[in-house]
């Protein structure tokens, strides 16, 4: 479960990257976080994962406050960053062992999990290769494996589909569904609205640091009284938020 209570973050006196947003992501759901470039998605994710501290408000992961107990809060989620470049000279298996050590995953359990995930992502043959020899997509898959090694209650992904081939993208969506179906939480940001439309139980649309909409796809269609695609509704939402949009209508 993820709870964002009135969190704000500003980088300058005049601009708030995230402005008093509230979100409640339940166990067992896949939650899509959508928004155009510079909307505040990555800032929000950085606050959720403890990279940045909110100026105001509170982040709770599984009821644990990121501000008060960051160590415990960080143990309960797995994070896949949008930039998968880390420790390029390590071998893939060494990186996974390191992640296993950090999250205290028993050796037998991690061996089984690594083997299973490597098979799904077709990385079995590459585990003994250095990360620097991997393509962007392969690195992305490795980050996903590292984040899931300790079977976290909350799985957070920042733009996870970038660079993945269709088969891996399909596998990832399957894994997200399985994760949510086992009663755990999946929270991810994406630009690919098609993906969000197909796999998300709920979505939130953020722009200029404000949540424009939060609910199920049906809620959104009801809100717009339309059967249009998510892309159309998303564009309309974002368009309405643009400065001066209200004056024109």
């Amino acid at each position: 479960m993820i709870e964002l209570n009135n969190i704000s973050k500003s980088y300058s006196k005049h601009i708030k990257a995230v402005d008093a947003i509230n979100l409640h992501v339940e166990n067992g759901e896949i939650f899509g976080f959508l928004g155009p470039n510079g909307a505040g998605k990555t800032t929000t994710i950085k606050m959720i994962t403890g990279i940045l501290e909110p100026d105001e408000g509170e982040v709770l992961i599984n009821q644990i406050s990121m501000n008060q107990s960051p160590y415990e809060a960080k143990k309960s989620f797995g994070f896949v960053p949008d930039d998968p470049d880390i420790f390029p000279r390590l071998k893939a298996i060494e990186y996974l062992q390191f992640m296993g050590n950090i999250y205290d995953v028993p050796t037998e359990v991690r061996s089984v999990k690594i083997a299973e995930m490597a098979r799904r992502f077709e990385l079995t043959e590459s585990l003994s290769n250095r990360i620097q020899s991997f393509s962007h997509g392969m690195r992305q898959k490795l980050m996903i494996m590292g984040a899931l090694l300790h079977t976290p209650d909350v799985w957070i992904l920042d733009e996870p589909m970038t660079g993945l081939d269709p088969r891996s993208s399909y596998q990832l969506k399957e894994m997200m569904r399985e994760h949510a179906d086992s009663g755990k939480t999946v929270f991810f940001s994406t630009h690919v609205l098609d993906v969000a439309e197909r796999i998300c139980d709920r979505v939130a649309v953020i722009d200029h640091g404000h949540i424009l909409f939060c609910g199920t796809m049906d809620d959104m269609r009801h809100h717009f009284q339309s059967t249009r695609s998510l892309e159309d509704m998303f564009l309309q939402l974002v368009e309405e938020m643009r400065p001066g949009a209200g004056e024109q209508t």
């Binding site: 160590y71 960080k74 143990k75 989620f77 420790f87």
Partner: peptide, 8 residues
Amino acid sequence: EKLLPLPL
């Protein structure tokens, strides 16, 4: 920055 989200 890569290490910050880890429980370290």
